[in-house]
Design a protein around this nucleic acid. Sequence first.
DNA 1: AATTCGGGGAA
DNA 2: TTCCCAGAATT
Length: 354
Amino acid sequence: MKPINIRLLAWYDSHARTLPWRVSPGEGRQGVLPDPYHVWLSEVMLQQTTVATVGPYFEKFIAKWPTVKNLAACDLEDVMKAWAGLGYYSRARNLKACADKVASEHDGKFPQTAAELQKLPGIGPYTSAAIAAIAFGERTTVVDGNIERVSTRHTANSTPLPQVKEHCREFMDRVTPADRPGDFVQAMMDLGATICTPRNPACSLCPINDDCQGHIQQIAEQFPVKAPKKPKPTRVGAAFVAQRPDGAIWLTKRPNKGLLGGMSVVPTTGWTASKNGATGYAAAPIVGDWIPHGHIRHTFTHFHLELEVWSAHVNMLPGDGWWSLQHQIGGEALPTVMKKVISAVADDLFKVPK
DNA sequence: AATTCGGGGAA
DNA sequence: TTCCCAGAATT
């Protein structure tokens, strides 16, 4: 039987997905490597985020900032606005910090080894290895969620995550070729995304099913084994949409660290396990004729949130913040939960093109 | 080693 | 609903 990398690369040459950050399949087969800036940007966006979600954001960023130097030259606030809705907002701040460092310390050229890349903000073990392999052809050992699934199934390894990750690394070190390492890791990831899927894997179509223990024993779907997850608690609070007579909405900025760090929000109460202290309009940032708009629900990584939504027409508010005019709101750095809140008051505000 | 970070698509 | 996604940083 041919080695795994031979079978996988042959499959990749005929089945590779065409994605915005990849070179064309024809170029790829001729050994053309993609732009490191594109690879880096896509890899950071793809951290815990699906290809379908990333696509439009990637296109928007490339159009707005064609090079890493362009990104370094812009304001962080513009990056936060462009990243709004994509989630995990520390990625956006690290993205900017990384661009600044590449521009100022490396003359706008990304380091070419995984070891050097990992010294940059927002680039960890996975992303450094992926960029080095895909953009520079280094024979690194890449392990992501797809590869964890493919490799644990191939070896029928029932060690639970995250301990099994080291075995996955050894598996990859054993099978990754020195020639076309970037295409190989992308082939592994495409395989995991399209055939070796979490549920109902299409084993009959898999190019490496002949020596896959998961397939042979008909137990592929049970890997990887994971520790049971904790239930998500629910937190509650109230949000206040203050509107000026001209329709502008009062926004404030979250601190740069923690949940929704650096993002723009309307004033809210604290988000607590249960209602405590002042609630409803009694907790509003200013006395006024607050009108109830029901509540919105939103789920974060580790808790559910239920927010009462209130609105009122006011002329001024205390504290730090600014009035955002209706035509500006779509361009603000608003996380999705805040778009839900504002939509509950003015449901047509985000239907206008940004 | 555990926890904290968003959001959306699929089943 | 639950799961999981081209994970990193922090504690």
